[in-house]
């Protein structure tokens, strides 16, 4: 079942990315990319490595996090419900079969597309800074998010008030739960990483609006849809979504600073060991 869902996801996102690349990035940038891709890869390699390591670390840590957070975590499900009351229920009161289909699609496919496409789009730019900043922001989102998951134990609305908040996604499409449980535990709801990563992408899209004006509109629309979908599907509380927005803002601000401060080339110059390693690497490649 999982394999089938994964395959479906891969195909759909690949098609969406290909179509958008053609429409948004354009032929000129692509052909330039073909000429410059080595240099661009080199400049984005360090942060890509860090992101990969942090994702690996994340997947390992998520096995341990639940046990750890049961020991030191703070259980806040009920507090969230008491604070925000029925906002999620109000969102759900507008539920229709079409809306459920749309938001389920957005939550699964739209979200993954939203994360993948900007990597492609920014790679197609000669200036690699947006790309490096984006990947740094992804890393920060995941890492800081994980920290919150350790400290805060919370179940989403569908778990706390199942008689009021319908588990629309999993009741309508149970197969997706095979996918989501691979990447998340049901106590990891604060903050909403769906929201924070989507908002991160949208904010970057806004900054690069001069280069990709069409993408900005699409990204903002999709990001808002993703954020709403997490509540519509009763997966997250509104508080999780707001916390996601804060996390996105923090991640972008920090990413901007980090990328400005430590560029890979500076590192190589300043640290002899790193320099020697980089030279050895170069010679190996030749």
């Amino acid at each position: 079942m999982l394999v089938r869902v994964l395959l479906q996801l891969t195909v759909v996102v690949a098609v969406m990315t290909a179509v958008s690349t053609a429409a948004v990035v354009g032929r000129d940038r692509l052909s330039k990319t073909r000429r410059e891709y080595r240099d661009r890869l080199k400049s984005a390699a360090p942060i890509t490595g860090i992101l990969a390591i942090s994702l690996l670390f994340n997947s390992v840590a998520r096995e341990i996090v639940p046990d750890l957070s049961w020991m030191i975590g703070w259980e806040v499900t009920e507090a969230f419900y008491n604070i925000e009351g029925g906002f999620v229920l109000w969102v759900q009161s507008y539920a229709t079969p079409v809306a459920t289909t749309y938001f389920s699609f957005v939550y699964i496919y739209g979200y993954v597309f939203l994360l993948v496409f900007p990597v492609v789009a920014y790679f197609a730019l000669s200036d690699t800074r947006p790309l490096r900043e984006l990947l740094t922001a992804y890393t920060l989102n995941y890492t800081l998010g994980l920290l919150c998951y350790v400290l805060v134990i919370a179940y989403g609305p569908r778990n706390m008030i199942p008689e009021l908040a319908e588990a629309l996604l999993y009741d309508t499409y149970p197969q997706y739960q095979h996918l989501t449980r691979q990447v998340n535990r049901n106590t990891n709801v604060f903050p909403s990483l769906h929201t924070s990563l989507s908002a991160t992408v949208a904010m970057f899209a806004y900054r690069t609006r001069d280069v990709y004006p069409k993408w900005m509109l699409a990204a903002i629309f999709l990001a808002v849809s993703v954020a709403v979908s997490t509540m519509y599907l009763a997966i997250h509380w509104t508080i999780d979504v707001l916390a996601g927005l804060v996390l996105a803002y923090v991640s972008i601000t920090l990413a901007e600073r980090f990328v400005g401060r430590w560029s890979a080339s500076d590192l190589i110059e300043e640290w002899p060991l790193v320099k020697r390693f980089a030279e050895r690497w170069e010679s190996l490649r030749r």
């Binding site: 999993y170 197969q175 739960q177």
Partner: peptide, 11 residues
């Protein structure tokens, strides 16, 4: 292992 009764039925 399925994540819930509905998923199990579908399996």
């Amino acid at each position: 292992i399925d994540p819930g009764s509905l998923a199990a039925i579908e399996t």
